[in-house]
Amino acid sequence: MINIVLLSLLVVIAIAIIRMKDLFAVVMLTGIYGLLSASFFVAMDAVDVAFTEAAVGAGISTLLMLVAITMTGRKEKVTRHKPFAALFIVLITGGLLIYGTLDMPLFGSADAPIHSHVAPRYLNDSMQEIGIPNVVTSVLASYRAFDTFGEVVVIFTAGIGVLALLFVPRRKEEDEKIASINDSMHEHHLVIRIITKMLIPFILLFALYVQFHGDYGPGGGFQAGVIFSSAIVLYTMLFGLSTARKVINQGFIQLMAAFGVLFYGCVGIASLMNGGNFFDYNVLSDDPVAGQHLGILLIEWGVGVTVAAIMIIIFFSFAGRRELQQHSENNKNRESL
């Protein structure tokens, strides 16, 4: 029942997003949309997915879009032509897809084809083969470790792309000037600054808990990385980019991003060297189950480091670009005066 309510709310929000012209409202609605879909995932028993979606969909993605809007303007222009063609295409495609669903297995049926192939093996044998209770983690980090490796490389590549598009090298004296503008801007958020300072250690601790408890409960490297980076992002938002860069050096964080991917790959190489298949952790230790535990711990760590580093790099790049734009605007204003 609860999933019907949640799905209906999602449809309402999607329609509101189509009609809104104010991009700020659209982005806030996207955040609510992410949070609602996370609740829906909990109702569907996908606790790990819900965890990720709550951290990413409702947190980081809303934030990145807000930063982008501050640079590109918050109003959407009304298009002159009537979008009948688009409506026509969408209705036809939707109609065909609904016709396609008529053959689909009904929701929740245990004999659907999806539950017949590898899923029973994961559920029945993973306790003997891998030895950890959270099946999602054992599939993610062991059975399908090669797949996850690919995903981590994609995240790494996207981070490099953002860096290539937005990074601007700055001279030191310029940096200090920009920093002084920023510091004066941040002074009036005193209460939020103090509370944030108290919150940050707990957020970081929680990220580490999620990282290392992923074998036994919902969690793992992906979620932990996003939560860890959100603490740094919070700090950057309230204390300015140059202060945050003093805490976390840009070069160091770039190194960590590459190191995480490399570390993940090295675990695979190590299992090759020990005479197993790529990412076959059984050979890492005398006891196959202990080897699996070790392998999963190591690669989850690699995933966490890369994801956290890339998220921080992405936010730093956006914030740095924005500071530069503000700086040049200030200069222009001063010249015109």
Binding site: D48, E53, G57, I114, V135, V136, L140, E151, M311
Partner: peptide, 15 residues
């Protein structure tokens, strides 16, 4: 659990 794994990674790649 299999779709959960696929979607979990897809969300982070998506962002």
């Amino acid at each position: 659990p299999l779709p959960h794994v696929l979607i979990l990674t897809a969300i982070v790649v998506g962002i």
